[in-house]
Design a protein around this nucleic acid. Structure first.
Length: 268
DNA sequence: ATGGTTGGTTACCAA
């Protein structure tokens, strides 16, 4: 990557990379991001569609071997990136990190959804989700400072703002928008002074979603979405973020993911 | 208040 150039970073929970090849093909032809960070690729290393991405000119494809085809994230880029150590306590290949421009840490996260019941005494998955976010908050506080250049992105499975969900009132007790999750996520946000690179361009007064359930009869008409996918940059990078985009059109592809891509353009 | 859909080395579980 040349100095002083615009870089597009796109995140996308594809809900199985193999099922989504036609949709990803359409998206890459139209948007051609420099760095593509996928979540929920649901594929083992040996079955990953390497050639598909190489044919689009992506020479850097980073994901890690696990025996199961669940969860998992990948970082794909046009140019080689330096791989940096994973955060050790995140399981199920839900995290990978790289360094860009020699000094910016770029993290790809897939935070667990946390089950259906928003009660830590009845639902271990909800408990583990909250604990993971607490651990991440502590990790950033202990390992990074407000002067470090850090971008964290991915499916965080929490919609923090009132207008990040179709009905604040009706989702208060629904996992992804409960006050306890929102509080935990805000602590992570404040840990080293992250900024929301997408809300920077779209005021909090406007509804904004990145996910629509498969269960709706007509997802677009009912429009009961949530903004679960986020890109945050640390304070000294925020001013270099020049644009953000949620590519809602992919939700109308044949065999779509329930999430749509979220991207930023950043001048580096 | 209930049920609705999708995916995985799948016939249950997670999302």
């Amino acid at each position: 990557m040349k100095n002083n150039s615009k870089i597009n970073i796109t995140i996308w929970n594809v809900n199985s990379v193999r099922k989504r090849l036609n949709s990803i093909d359409k998206f890459l032809k139209a948007y051609s991001p420099d760095i593509l960070m996928l979540q929920e690729i649901k594929v083992r290393n040996d079955l990953f569609p390497f050639q598909f991405f190489r044919d689009f000119g992506y020479r850097f494809i980073h994901h890690e071997g696990e025996t199961t085809g669940y969860n998992r994230v990948a970082i794909i880029a046009k140019e080689d990136l330096e791989i940096i150590p994973k955060i050790s306590f995140i399981k199920d290949a839900r995290h990978l990190a790289v360094k860009i421009r020699n000094d910016i840490d770029l993290h790809n996260f897939y935070i667990p959804a946390g089950g259906d019941i928003p009660d830590v005494s009845k639902n271990i998955k909800f408990k583990e989700k909250l604990e993971l976010i607490d651990k991440l908050t502590a990790w950033f506080k202990n390992n990074k400072s407000k002067n470090d250049k850090v971008i964290i992105a991915g499916d965080l499975n929490i919609a923090p703002l009132r207008n990040d969900v179709w009905s604040h009132k009706q989702l208060l007790n629904i996992v992804s928008h409960t006050p306890i999750e929102v509080e935990k996520l805000l602590n992570l946000y404040k840990s080293i002074g992250f900024k929301d690179s997408v809300r920077k361009f779209i005021p909090e007064s406007e509804k904004l979603y990145s996910w629509w359930s498969y269960r709706a009869r007509d997802w677009e008409k009912s429009d009961r979405g949530r903004r679960l996918d986020h890109i945050w940059s640390s304070g000294n990078l925020d001013e270099k973020v020049m644009a953000a985009n949620i590519i809602k059109s992919t939700r109308n592809h044949d065999l779509p993911s329930d999430h749509v891509p979220v991207s930023i353009d950043i001048n580096l």
